[in-house]
Write a protein that binds this DNA or RNA. Structure first.
Lengths: 189, 189
DNA sequence: ACCTGAACACCGTTCAAGT
DNA sequence: ACCTGAACACCGTTCAAGT
């Protein structure tokens, strides 16, 4: 039922994903869909949260929380860029709200806490990381300026990785509401 | 002609901005609009680039290029958050392409160059800053997780400012394809 | 140069009715 | 529980024609 919708999105993008086209693909009258789904919005929200289930959650007893956090965001970035048609929907909805999104948020909080980030800072840090990841996924593969030829996948990935390192370094440096002189780790290489 | 469209967007948001509603507001037949505008897409693109004209461009002979860059991004963030209905369009179009967008990109390049950032790194840095600014503008004022009550304006602003500082620190530290031991400035306070 | 009437090919959604 | 027929209130856009 939902898988057909996912296929449509993968093929034709968002604007091709209409209720009537979906019904056409299922050889069914358009209104028949409303026996399975309340809204088009509900349908899309379900698809968005389903995608987040593909993000691998790290082991709880991980040694280095910051490294685990970097891996988590990189994995999320990979999942999002693998489904570019869905990314604008995350932006339009300003993030997902489903159970998988909530779970990922809890994991991020646990990792930030494990890294010594105070709760009040963790809220900001989580926000920064989420916005950053979705934002970069949205821009992956598209030129930001007309004089720039489309960036290669590698280039987008490298830019994301680098800025992610910058943010994580900033987060750890201001971890406990104080400014230690890079006590934990300085970003080298 | 275009000002009516801007008013509609300010009032009702994107989904209220339809060609037919715009024609209604102008007491005109829907197809009459096509004497002034090629497409709905063209109309929206024009609106997007117009908004960027409101971003103040810093003096060319500024002393501290990094501070000027921070001011530029903060000003852009302010302009975007002042027109929240337009921000999703920047995301959908993955940035603006008009003359004002090009000009701002050139200013950013000049500032990055003035800060000692090599051209190859400047391309990445500009991309990071643009994505970051638009991304945060998109999420300003909306909770990223259901258990979070809507963030205050101040909180959004502070999160943006802080992450902007992190990114600028990261950019300057890796300025010339080498890793100086924070020769230029370490983020203190 | 700018507008209109009429039309085309669509949308999402609802209501009543069937099995 | 699941589907259909018919309808409602919309879209963006084009074409031919008017001034």
């Amino acid at each position: 039922v939902l898988v057909a919708a996912r296929e449509m999105l993968a093929e034709g993008g968002i604007e091709a994903m209409t209720m009537r086209a979906l019904a056409r693909r299922l050889d069914v009258a358009p209104n028949a869909l409303y026996s399975h789904v309340a809204n088009k919005t509900d349908l899309l929200d379900a698809l968005l949260d389903d995608l987040l289930a593909a993000v691998p959650v790290p082991e709880p007893g991980s040694r280095d929380p910051i490294a685990a956090l970097a891996d988590l965001m990189t994995a999320t970035y990979a999942v999002l860029t693998a489904h570019p048609n869905l990314v604008p929907l995350y932006l339009a909805r300003q993030g997902a709200r489903g159970p998988h999104a909530v779970q990922l948020g809890a994991v991020m909080d646990a990792l930030l806490s494990g890294a010594g980030v105070s709760p009040v800072n963790a809220t900001e840090a989580r926000r920064v990381l989420i916005v950053h990841t979705i934002g970069f996924a949205a821009f992956a593969g598209a030129p930001t300026e007309p004089d720039t030829r489309p960036l290669s996948f590698d280039s987008s990935q490298r830019t994301f990785d680098r800025s992610l390192r910058w943010l994580l370094a900033g987060i750890t440096q201001t971890a406990g509401d104080i400014e230690p002189n890079q006590q934990s780790r300085r970003p080298q290489e």
